[in-house]
Amino acid sequence: MKRDLIYTCKSANPEETSDFARKMKSIFVPGVVVSLIGNLGSGKTFFVKEFASAFGIKDVDSPTFTIVNEYVSNQKIIHIDFYRINKISELYEIGIFDYLNNPETIVFVEWGNLYPDILPEKRFELEIESSENNHRKICVYELG
């Protein structure tokens, strides 16, 4: 399967990450699934929060407990988190495919790397690496 690096961003502070997230609006369009990969505290939820703010959505918070958050404005954004999922059958049980196969929504999946096989082959992967001084390196890959 093809996995092309299409964007990289070196961010020195939250403002720069926010700018990058908002710019991705032209790439992450309705119908896409974006798997977010990065350690605890790397800024996955922050990225989605800033991305969604470009659509006027202000109520983004962590979906770790809820598993799925749905945000609605003129654009519907689905924010999923696999962190608390113990086995793949739990994803079937919550009806994961109803969320993943909707041409009108933009889907973000935190910890998507825990169950990559359940995600569509054609997707984006966004890797966030944090380094010292709170700097971040963000890489966006296009798959499939």
Partner: peptide, 17 residues
């Protein structure tokens, strides 16, 4: 309210760390 993680989530994640 919280602007990011819930407090219980912080307890869970720090326990994991």
């Amino acid at each position: 309210g919280t602007i990011d993680d819930a407090i219980g989530e912080a307890f869970d994640k720090v326990a994991k760390l």
